[in-house]
Design a protein around this nucleic acid. Sequence first.
DNA 1: CTTACGGCCTGGGTGC
DNA 2: TGCACCCAGGCCGTAA
Length: 286
Amino acid sequence: MPELPEVETVVRGLRAAVVGRRITDVRFGKTDFIADPAALVRLLPGCRIAGVARRGKFVVLRLERMSPPNARATLLIHLGMTGQIVVGGAAAPVSPHTHVFVALDDGRELRYTDVRRFGRISLVSDAQLPENVLRLGPDPLEITAGEFQKRIGGRRAMIKALLLDQSVLAGLGNIYVDETLWRARVHPQRLAVRLRSQELLRLHRTMRDVLREAVRLRGSSVSDYVDAEGQRGDYQQRHRVYQREGKRCFRCGAAIRRVVVAGRSSFFCPRCQRAPRRHRGRRGVG
DNA sequence: CTTACGGCCTGGGTGC
DNA sequence: TGCACCCAGGCCGTAA
Protein backbone atom coordinates (compact mmCIF):
# COMPACT_ATOMS: atom_id res chain seq x y z
CA MET A 1 0.00 0.00 0.00
CA PRO A 2 1.97 2.93 -1.25
CA GLU A 3 2.10 5.85 1.15
CA LEU A 4 4.70 8.59 1.39
CA PRO A 5 7.76 6.37 2.00
CA GLU A 6 6.85 3.93 -0.76
CA VAL A 7 6.06 6.69 -3.26
CA GLU A 8 9.26 8.52 -2.33
CA THR A 9 11.24 5.32 -2.93
CA VAL A 10 9.58 4.78 -6.30
CA VAL A 11 10.23 8.40 -7.25
CA ARG A 12 13.93 8.19 -6.40
CA GLY A 13 14.30 5.02 -8.43
CA LEU A 14 12.42 6.52 -11.36
CA ARG A 15 14.43 9.70 -11.22
CA ALA A 16 17.66 7.74 -11.57
CA ALA A 17 16.23 5.59 -14.32
CA VAL A 18 14.25 7.86 -16.64
CA VAL A 19 15.19 11.53 -16.27
CA GLY A 20 16.52 12.78 -19.60
CA ARG A 21 14.97 9.91 -21.55
CA ARG A 22 12.63 10.53 -24.44
CA ILE A 23 9.35 8.64 -24.78
CA THR A 24 9.04 6.77 -28.06
CA ASP A 25 5.76 4.91 -27.70
CA VAL A 26 2.77 4.37 -25.41
CA ARG A 27 0.59 1.27 -25.29
CA PHE A 28 -2.22 0.21 -22.95
CA GLY A 29 -4.00 -2.76 -21.52
CA LYS A 30 -7.09 -1.66 -19.64
CA THR A 31 -7.59 2.10 -19.48
CA ASP A 32 -10.56 2.67 -17.17
CA PHE A 33 -8.31 4.25 -14.53
CA ILE A 34 -6.71 6.70 -16.97
CA ALA A 35 -8.36 10.11 -17.34
CA ASP A 36 -7.82 10.47 -21.10
CA PRO A 37 -5.86 7.59 -22.62
CA ALA A 38 -6.13 9.01 -26.14
CA ALA A 39 -4.38 12.17 -24.97
CA LEU A 40 -1.49 10.11 -23.64
CA VAL A 41 -1.11 8.31 -26.96
CA ARG A 42 -1.26 11.61 -28.80
CA LEU A 43 0.96 13.71 -26.57
CA LEU A 44 3.51 11.52 -24.81
CA PRO A 45 5.57 10.17 -27.71
CA GLY A 46 8.41 12.58 -28.37
CA CYS A 47 8.29 14.03 -24.87
CA ARG A 48 11.46 14.26 -22.83
CA ILE A 49 11.16 13.31 -19.17
CA ALA A 50 12.55 16.40 -17.48
CA GLY A 51 12.03 15.43 -13.86
CA VAL A 52 10.36 13.13 -11.38
CA ALA A 53 8.92 14.39 -8.10
CA ARG A 54 6.54 13.38 -5.35
CA ARG A 55 3.58 15.43 -4.20
CA GLY A 56 1.86 13.68 -1.31
CA LYS A 57 1.25 10.18 -2.63
CA PHE A 58 1.37 11.29 -6.26
CA VAL A 59 4.22 10.53 -8.60
CA VAL A 60 4.76 13.64 -10.71
CA LEU A 61 6.48 13.19 -14.08
CA ARG A 62 7.49 16.51 -15.62
CA LEU A 63 7.46 16.32 -19.40
CA GLU A 64 8.78 18.63 -22.12
CA ARG A 65 7.21 18.44 -25.53
CA MET A 66 9.21 19.15 -28.67
CA SER A 67 6.47 21.12 -30.33
CA PRO A 68 5.53 23.76 -29.64
CA PRO A 69 8.99 24.42 -28.24
CA ASN A 70 9.22 24.22 -24.45
CA ALA A 71 5.61 23.12 -24.06
CA ARG A 72 5.28 21.41 -20.73
CA ALA A 73 2.92 18.89 -19.31
CA THR A 74 2.75 16.82 -16.17
CA LEU A 75 1.80 13.20 -15.81
CA LEU A 76 0.23 12.56 -12.40
CA ILE A 77 0.25 8.97 -11.21
CA HIS A 78 -1.44 7.79 -8.03
CA LEU A 79 -0.63 4.19 -7.18
CA GLY A 80 -3.82 3.54 -5.24
CA MET A 81 -3.43 0.33 -3.28
CA THR A 82 -1.65 -1.98 -5.66
CA GLY A 83 -0.09 0.23 -8.33
CA GLN A 84 3.52 -0.44 -9.34
CA ILE A 85 5.82 1.46 -11.65
CA VAL A 86 8.78 -0.57 -12.80
CA VAL A 87 11.44 0.30 -15.37
CA GLY A 88 13.16 -2.55 -17.16
CA GLY A 89 14.07 -4.04 -20.47
CA ALA A 90 11.35 -3.88 -23.10
CA ALA A 91 11.81 -7.58 -23.69
CA ALA A 92 11.27 -8.53 -20.04
CA PRO A 93 8.32 -10.81 -19.33
CA VAL A 94 5.10 -8.86 -18.72
CA SER A 95 3.64 -9.22 -15.21
CA PRO A 96 -0.09 -9.87 -14.98
CA HIS A 97 -2.27 -6.76 -14.66
CA THR A 98 0.23 -4.54 -16.47
CA HIS A 99 -1.83 -1.86 -18.21
CA VAL A 100 0.55 0.88 -19.34
CA PHE A 101 3.72 0.45 -21.39
CA VAL A 102 5.85 3.54 -21.99
CA ALA A 103 8.74 2.80 -24.34
CA LEU A 104 11.89 4.89 -23.85
CA ASP A 105 14.62 5.89 -26.28
CA ASP A 106 17.23 3.73 -24.52
CA GLY A 107 15.35 0.54 -25.30
CA ARG A 108 13.85 0.18 -21.86
CA GLU A 109 10.23 0.42 -20.87
CA LEU A 110 8.37 2.04 -18.01
CA ARG A 111 5.44 -0.16 -17.04
CA TYR A 112 2.46 0.45 -14.78
CA THR A 113 0.97 -2.61 -13.14
CA ASP A 114 -2.12 -2.49 -10.92
CA VAL A 115 -4.12 -5.54 -9.84
CA ARG A 116 -7.02 -3.56 -8.35
CA ARG A 117 -6.81 -0.57 -10.69
CA PHE A 118 -7.52 1.76 -7.77
CA GLY A 119 -4.65 3.87 -9.08
CA ARG A 120 -5.19 6.93 -11.27
CA ILE A 121 -3.23 8.43 -14.14
CA SER A 122 -3.86 11.81 -15.71
CA LEU A 123 -2.00 14.16 -17.98
CA VAL A 124 -2.43 17.80 -17.01
CA SER A 125 -1.14 21.03 -18.46
CA ASP A 126 0.75 23.43 -16.24
CA ALA A 127 -2.38 25.56 -16.19
CA GLN A 128 -4.39 22.66 -14.78
CA LEU A 129 -1.71 21.62 -12.30
CA PRO A 130 -2.73 23.97 -9.48
CA GLU A 131 -6.31 22.69 -9.31
CA ASN A 132 -5.05 19.13 -9.05
CA VAL A 133 -2.44 19.85 -6.45
CA LEU A 134 -3.95 22.81 -4.62
CA ARG A 135 -6.24 20.74 -2.44
CA LEU A 136 -3.33 18.75 -1.07
CA GLY A 137 -1.97 19.80 2.28
CA PRO A 138 1.73 20.30 3.04
CA ASP A 139 4.20 17.44 3.04
CA PRO A 140 4.65 15.72 6.42
CA LEU A 141 8.42 15.79 6.00
CA GLU A 142 8.42 19.52 5.35
CA ILE A 143 5.81 20.89 7.71
CA THR A 144 7.16 22.74 10.74
CA ALA A 145 5.95 22.06 14.26
CA GLY A 146 4.18 25.41 14.28
CA GLU A 147 2.35 24.75 11.03
CA PHE A 148 1.43 21.29 12.25
CA GLN A 149 -0.12 22.67 15.41
CA LYS A 150 -1.98 25.30 13.45
CA ARG A 151 -3.48 22.82 10.96
CA ILE A 152 -4.37 20.10 13.47
CA GLY A 153 -4.78 21.73 16.85
CA GLY A 154 -8.23 23.01 17.68
CA ARG A 155 -10.09 20.81 15.25
CA ARG A 156 -12.87 18.64 16.57
CA ALA A 157 -12.27 15.60 14.37
CA MET A 158 -10.48 12.50 15.58
CA ILE A 159 -6.73 12.77 15.24
CA LYS A 160 -6.53 9.71 13.02
CA ALA A 161 -9.07 11.13 10.56
CA LEU A 162 -7.12 14.37 10.33
CA LEU A 163 -3.76 12.67 9.77
CA LEU A 164 -5.33 10.59 6.98
CA ASP A 165 -6.92 13.63 5.35
CA GLN A 166 -4.78 14.53 2.34
CA SER A 167 -5.95 18.14 2.44
CA VAL A 168 -4.54 18.45 5.97
CA LEU A 169 -1.27 16.64 5.30
CA ALA A 170 -0.43 14.97 1.99
CA GLY A 171 1.27 11.61 2.15
CA LEU A 172 0.20 9.67 5.22
CA GLY A 173 -1.94 6.55 4.93
CA ASN A 174 -3.23 3.92 7.31
CA ILE A 175 0.08 2.22 8.10
CA TYR A 176 2.12 5.30 8.96
CA VAL A 177 -0.70 6.98 10.87
CA ASP A 178 -1.10 3.94 13.12
CA GLU A 179 2.65 3.58 13.61
CA THR A 180 3.01 7.29 14.37
CA LEU A 181 0.14 7.28 16.87
CA TRP A 182 1.56 4.26 18.68
CA ARG A 183 5.02 5.76 18.95
CA ALA A 184 3.60 9.06 20.15
CA ARG A 185 1.27 7.19 22.57
CA VAL A 186 -1.82 8.92 21.22
CA HIS A 187 -5.10 7.01 20.85
CA PRO A 188 -6.50 7.21 17.27
CA GLN A 189 -9.91 8.36 18.52
CA ARG A 190 -8.65 11.32 20.53
CA LEU A 191 -10.17 14.57 19.27
CA ALA A 192 -7.46 16.89 18.00
CA VAL A 193 -8.92 19.75 20.04
CA ARG A 194 -8.29 17.73 23.20
CA LEU A 195 -4.61 17.11 22.50
CA ARG A 196 -2.19 19.02 24.65
CA SER A 197 0.40 21.16 22.94
CA GLN A 198 3.06 18.75 24.14
CA GLU A 199 1.22 15.84 22.51
CA LEU A 200 0.92 17.69 19.20
CA LEU A 201 4.64 18.42 19.26
CA ARG A 202 5.36 14.78 20.03
CA LEU A 203 3.11 13.68 17.16
CA HIS A 204 4.88 16.02 14.77
CA ARG A 205 8.32 14.77 15.77
CA THR A 206 7.28 11.11 15.80
CA MET A 207 5.58 11.33 12.41
CA ARG A 208 8.76 12.65 10.87
CA ASP A 209 10.94 10.06 12.62
CA VAL A 210 8.71 7.23 11.42
CA LEU A 211 8.58 8.52 7.84
CA ARG A 212 12.31 9.18 7.61
CA GLU A 213 13.12 5.71 8.88
CA ALA A 214 10.60 4.17 6.51
CA VAL A 215 12.11 6.05 3.56
CA ARG A 216 15.55 4.85 4.65
CA LEU A 217 14.27 1.26 4.62
CA ARG A 218 12.62 1.81 1.23
CA GLY A 219 9.06 1.57 2.47
CA SER A 220 6.80 -1.23 3.67
CA SER A 221 5.99 -4.24 1.50
CA VAL A 222 2.79 -5.53 3.07
CA SER A 223 1.07 -6.96 0.03
CA ASP A 224 2.62 -6.29 -3.32
CA TYR A 225 4.49 -2.99 -3.12
CA VAL A 226 7.76 -2.88 -5.04
CA ASP A 227 9.96 0.05 -6.04
CA ALA A 228 10.98 1.11 -9.56
CA GLU A 229 13.58 -1.65 -9.66
CA GLY A 230 11.01 -4.23 -8.59
CA GLN A 231 12.52 -4.58 -5.10
CA ARG A 232 10.50 -4.91 -1.89
CA GLY A 233 10.91 -2.55 1.08
CA ASP A 234 11.93 -3.50 4.61
CA TYR A 235 9.95 -1.22 6.89
CA GLN A 236 7.21 -3.84 7.46
CA GLN A 237 9.68 -5.47 9.83
CA ARG A 238 9.53 -2.34 11.99
CA HIS A 239 5.74 -2.19 12.23
CA ARG A 240 4.69 -2.07 15.88
CA VAL A 241 0.91 -2.11 15.61
CA TYR A 242 -0.21 -2.28 11.99
CA GLN A 243 -1.95 -5.63 11.37
CA ARG A 244 -0.83 -6.91 14.77
CA GLU A 245 -4.24 -7.35 16.40
CA GLY A 246 -4.01 -9.69 19.40
CA LYS A 247 -0.23 -9.67 19.42
CA ARG A 248 1.80 -8.15 22.24
CA CYS A 249 2.67 -4.48 22.37
CA PHE A 250 6.44 -4.06 21.86
CA ARG A 251 6.51 -1.57 24.76
CA CYS A 252 4.21 -2.95 27.43
CA GLY A 253 3.12 -6.42 26.36
CA ALA A 254 -0.61 -5.66 26.27
CA ALA A 255 -2.63 -7.16 23.41
CA ILE A 256 -2.87 -4.88 20.38
CA ARG A 257 -6.46 -4.02 19.51
CA ARG A 258 -8.27 -3.07 16.33
CA VAL A 259 -11.07 -0.53 16.01
CA VAL A 260 -12.55 1.17 12.97
CA VAL A 261 -11.77 4.89 12.84
CA ALA A 262 -12.53 7.08 9.86
CA GLY A 263 -13.66 3.92 8.09
CA ARG A 264 -10.23 2.33 8.45
CA SER A 265 -8.89 -0.53 10.51
CA SER A 266 -6.92 1.09 13.28
CA PHE A 267 -4.43 -0.81 15.39
CA PHE A 268 -3.34 0.51 18.77
CA CYS A 269 -2.15 -0.52 22.22
CA PRO A 270 -4.95 -0.01 24.75
CA ARG A 271 -2.44 0.50 27.55
CA CYS A 272 0.09 2.82 25.88
CA GLN A 273 -2.54 4.80 23.98
CA ARG A 274 -5.21 5.79 26.48
CA ALA A 275 -8.71 6.12 25.08
CA PRO A 276 -10.52 9.42 25.49
CA ARG A 277 -13.12 9.34 28.28
CA ARG A 278 -16.18 9.18 26.08
CA HIS A 279 -14.91 5.99 24.53
CA ARG A 280 -13.86 4.23 27.68
CA GLY A 281 -16.04 1.33 28.61
CA ARG A 282 -17.50 0.83 25.19
CA ARG A 283 -14.53 -0.43 23.32
CA GLY A 284 -15.30 -3.54 21.30
CA VAL A 285 -15.00 -6.96 22.86
CA GLY A 286 -12.70 -7.86 20.01
C1' DC B 1 -17.41 25.56 6.95
C1' DT B 2 -16.63 21.18 9.55
C1' DT B 3 -17.36 16.46 10.41
C1' DA B 4 -19.24 11.67 9.83
C1' DC B 5 -20.66 8.17 7.09
C1' DG B 6 -21.97 5.15 3.27
C1' DG B 7 -21.06 3.66 -1.27
C1' DC B 8 -18.16 2.72 -5.11
C1' DC B 9 -14.17 0.99 -7.72
C1' DT B 10 -11.68 -4.37 -8.17
C1' DG B 11 -10.12 -8.92 -7.28
C1' DG B 12 -7.17 -11.87 -3.89
C1' DG B 13 -7.86 -14.40 0.09
C1' DT B 14 -10.76 -16.81 3.17
C1' DG B 15 -14.19 -19.71 4.88
C1' DC B 16 -18.04 -22.59 4.20
C1' DT C 1 -14.22 -28.02 -6.27
C1' DG C 2 -16.89 -23.86 -6.31
C1' DC C 3 -18.71 -19.67 -4.70
C1' DA C 4 -20.23 -15.80 -1.75
C1' DC C 5 -18.35 -12.40 0.84
C1' DC C 6 -15.02 -9.43 3.21
C1' DC C 7 -11.73 -6.05 2.82
C1' DA C 8 -8.21 -2.70 1.28
C1' DG C 9 -7.46 3.33 0.24
C1' DG C 10 -9.14 7.33 -1.74
C1' DC C 11 -12.72 10.00 -3.09
C1' DC C 12 -17.24 11.83 -3.58
C1' DG C 13 -21.97 12.84 -2.38
C1' DT C 14 -24.99 13.63 1.33
C1' DA C 15 -26.63 14.86 5.79
C1' DA C 16 -26.38 17.16 10.18
